[in-house]
Design a protein around this nucleic acid. Sequence first.
RNA 1: GGGCGGUUAGCUCAGUUGGUUAGAGCGUUGCGUUGACAUCGCAAAGGUCGUAGGUUCGAGUCCUAUACCGCCCACCA
Length: 901
Amino acid sequence: MTDLPKTYDFQAAERRIYQWWEERGYFKPRSDPRRPDFDPAVEPFVISIPPPNVTGELHLGHAMFVSMEDLMIRYHRMKGYAALWVPGSDHAGIATQLQVERMLIAEGTSREALGREAFEQRTWEWKAKYGGIIQQQIRRLGASCDWERERFTLDPGLSRAVREAFVRLYDKGLIYRGPRMINWSPGLKTAVSDLEVEYSQEPGFLYHFKYMLDGSDEYIPVATTRPETILGDTAVAVHPEDERYRAFVGRSVIVPILGRKIPVIADDYVDRAFGTGALKITPAHDPNDYAISQRHNLPLINMLDDSAIVNENGGPYQGLSREEARKRLWDDMRAADLVIREEPYQLNVPRSQRGGEIIEPRVSTQWFVRIQPLAEAALAAVRDGRIKIVPERFTKVYYNWLENIEDWCISRQLWWGHRIPVWYCQDCNEQIVSREDPTACPHCGGNHLRQDEDVLDTWFSSALWPFSTLGWPEQTPDLRYFYPTSVMETGYDILFFWVARMIMMGLEFTGEVPFHTVYLHGLVRDENGQKMSKTKGNVIDPLLVMDELGTDALRFSMLVGSAPGNDMNLSVKKVEANRNFANKVWNASRFILGVLDNLPAAPVELVEGGWTLADSWVWGRLQALLRDVERLFAVHQYGEAGRQIYEFFWSEFADWYVEIAKIQLAEGGARARETAETLVRVLDACLRLLHPFTPFVTEELWGHLRAAAQQHGLRPFTGQEWPEALIIAAWPEGQPEEGWEAQKIAEFSLVQEIIRSIRNLRAERKVTPGRRIGAIIAAGERLPVLQEQARTIAALAFLDPQQFTLSAALSEPPQGAASLVVSSVEVYLPLAGMVDTSAERARLQGEMHDIQTQVTRLESLLGSSFAQKAPASVVNKERQKLATYQDTLSKLKTQLDSLGE
RNA sequence: GGGCGGUUAGCUCAGUUGGUUAGAGCGUUGCGUUGACAUCGCAAAGGUCGUAGGUUCGAGUCCUAUACCGCCCACCA
């Protein structure tokens, strides 16, 4: 003990311990097909890490998933599973490309100036330089990943998996290329998927204008939010039953300024009640218009280029931006008397999830996955229970998305990513889809091949992650043993992006679910529930928190105090509170180590009578805790389990047992040894329980505990011998409840109550702990229990043992003493000169009033149909309470009477 | 438009087979340096569990309706 500082120096310990764990190979699964001692009979437990962006920086989202997953991995490792946590990182196409482009611009050059090959080269260099940072930061969180199995989505193996997947889907007809309405990001100049578009409410206008009928001065009033798209209009649509416009259907109207003639069509889609009831149709720039145009065989006029600049189809507006074209066209229309009015209107603007720029719906030739068949299989896997989603409410969200899913646009016009494995023969115009780079055209033998310029959506490779990281498409030993994985733990915000797609791809390529359980955690917000963002300045940096308060405190904060799937509001104060807990564990352990220092080395014979009440109590409480934790872990209630361990450790073990242990230790001899043994075993169990939550401080303390205990021949909680490290020690298993537990716990509760009441009264009377006072207790049938506990009561209630008497009953109540009744045990405190009779009377009367309330309540409860209908055990419990209250009441009455006038 | 979550102590949140005086942390108040811990100890104050109904012997917990806050999906010009 003497060599342990008063406060836990986590800074030094964390690095040292992590390095030790890693060097000793504890992060590797205990049964490993890559090693000669592989034992396939051991059940594996596997998590694939949600791969962080390779150039990312640690944020609380990482802290959350690492804490959660490391908890599960450590727990299962201790339970004896072959626990494998596969680490890795994601190339993160758009995010990384943007970062590198920013760097290039700072250098005065650009992606375009460099050209594709040089750009890719620079990006790899960037990755080499910054790619390791995030992994180091994840190590700091204590992640017990098998780093030898680390993977990267662009490494050769995973790239091979991507090609295999692409070719298989293509051969099956599940991948196709064609023109389709997609979301175009004009700044990035790439297509993005529906999921990558976010809608934001923004103020704008609804522009009302005239669509003049050809050869007439009649017009159809039309409303639009985007006047510039008039340039691409190919029809005006009205509802077929709309009396106002019925006569116009089939005639032509004139596109403003451009003068093109376009038809008036009738379509059910039009809502007569909205706007003017007439809808302009711009098939190339609006998804709904596109759908209508398909029904009516309307032509498509694309009036914007890749950068959303008006092209040659925009006539006089060619070369203008969307915003500029809108303004100019509207001005010109006003001059031509085509404008009716502008109405303020709330717009729902599609913006890029990445850059925030306005997304342009656009018809473009892209690669798509025909998702329906995959989605159906993925739905079935959850419906029939092969995959369980926790918390359950997200299954509905999952169903809803997959039931309404659209084909997935997988091509991106980027340079950083998996290039689409398709080549076009310049000689015969054939398309070649191949796992290997072809050297000649298999159709004509020509060697003028050009590979498709596009890369795949980053999520395409992520979707293969659980099996590609284990070696797929090879049937590797890893894949055979560790797949399907056990739990997919991630944030609910990527349920669609990632989880659903992994399930679809997993089922398609391996015929099995990629994991059995999906555990979704919530998002980490600031203490007011606001999303953290740099602009708001409310970001909590996990690295700083770890520096200041320790990794364990941060981890405990992520794990405890919120429910699965619920967002968590994190404040530094909360982490501080948990730092205090780590410190509590440290100091309680430090005390116990000190006890061992002073313990006679040689074993002594057992104490007669065995355990004290406190020993039995703490043991019974520990067993109850172990059972509870096991039950909670089984239903993924890790937070509640952590809270209970915290409560037990601090409020029961440290506050009560350790305090009583001090008394028992003072007896010396066999009693002291017995007590030391209990201290060691309970502490050992607690450190094991806490280890998945707070791995560092527990490992550090446990090392000291192990050494000291071994010196004294003291056994651990679990097993006969002390394993070499806590991280690989066995999980403490609870025993089924035994008959004595409830009784001992009840007896001890009485002792606690008596002590608390005395302390309470002392506090009321301002009798400081330094002042020892006398006490007279009439215990009735509880006398034997209290006699055994006399020393404890005296010590913890700060009584003078010389003036402390216990008896079954008193012939007459002591005079001039403050009195209490605790569960029908009478307590008298002779506070000489401090007892004010009238104040005492008032206090007793108040007490009686409270108890009378309970008596009345219970009497009426037991007199009601409750007594007949409720289970006997429940009723008996209430009867018992009533009896105790009644007894207490009558004793209080006696005490009151004895005060005299 | 559809769906989900939240509403519990001053603040941030737990409370999962419905069991009868509702818990924690922080904050507040009083006392305390009793040799593990002031990153602490002892004690206290503080809640009609959003509202209204219902089921039940019994509801924070189940059902219905409703208010407010937040989120997701859809994307009516």
